[in-house]
């Protein structure tokens, strides 16, 4: 009567389950990218005029804002799936903590892939609308297919990396609600403190470690190792957590 189940099999089932159950995350992705798209069309122009009859205006278009919004989206999504209702619904069905975490990570990876892909592609939507609907004359920075692939891959690495940060933060909050207060205080506090001391913000230096890396390989190593470490830490913490529903 009793049936044996393997971890891999369970993770697969839970992943399939989560792709269905967490579907609202995908609607919010579309919504958030659409808002970022509108901002990208509207904002970002600067101008200069002279008294002898010249007025120059400059407008930049890019999907940068869409990518940034996607970062925020995955961060929030990752935190959300560590919260109690989401963890509890895993335990309505067959799971242990390991399979729950692994399937969460797989879900975040899929979400990251979709987010990164659509974010980078939205550049074409922005440029198409600017050209055909707003009738703008455009200078378009050339982009080769290989560069496009780099763009998607790098965006994916970033988004997945941020999802691991969100997952870790969410996990800490699950251990103790105090972290929900402590983490923002530390982040904002360190920015203010560094500003007060009139020095370069530690946090910025931390981020530059990733954002200023110009070697693709080193960048991939840096983000992937960080991602792995954060996910491992989260799994280790969640593995001891009780489910109180």
């Amino acid at each position: 009567m009793s049936s044996n189940v393997s971890l891999v099999e369970t993770v697969k089932k839970q992943y399939a389950f989560k792709m269905k159950a967490y579907i609202d995350a995908f609607s919010s992705l579309v919504g958030i990218q659409f808002i970022a798209f509108l901002f990208s069309l509207g904002g970002g122009s600067s101008s200069m005029g002279t008294s002898d009859g010249y007025h120059f205006e400059l407008k930049f278009y890019s999907a940068d804002l869409v990518i940034i919004f996607t970062f925020i989206w995955i961060f929030v999504t990752a935190i959300t799936i560590t919260t109690k209702p989401y963890r509890n619904q895993d335990f309505t069905f067959v799971t242990n903590r390991m399979s729950s975490s692994l399937s969460n990570i797989l879900f975040l990876l899929s979400a990251s892939l979709l987010g990164a892909f659509t974010a980078v592609l939205s550049r074409f939507l922005i440029q198409t609308v600017a050209y055909f609907l707003l009738k703008e004359d455009l200078y378009i920075a050339s982009v080769m297919t290989s560069e496009m692939m780099i763009g998607i891959t790098v965006s994916l690495l970033y988004v997945f990396w941020i999802s691991s940060i969100g997952y870790f933060v969410g996990t800490l909050v699950q251990i103790h609600k105090g972290f929900a207060l402590l983490i923002p205080v530390i982040v904002i506090g360190s920015l203010f403190y560094d500003g007060f001391m009139q020095r370069y913000a530690m946090l910025l230096i931390l981020f530059q470690f990733y954002f200023l890396e110009s070697s693709m390989v080193l960048f991939a190593i840096k983000t992937l190792i960080t991602t792995a470490v954060l996910f491992f830490a989260s799994i280790a913490i969640l593995n001891r957590m009780e489910v109180r529903r």
């Binding site: 120059f56 205006e57 400059l58 278009y61 890019s62 999907a63 703008e136 378009i140 920075a141």
Partner: peptide
């Protein structure tokens, strides 16, 4: 009046 619009590559590129 001169208006220039530039489509930039994303920072990830």
């Amino acid at each position: 009046k001169l208006k220039t619009s530039i489509v930039m590559n994303e920072f990830t590129i």
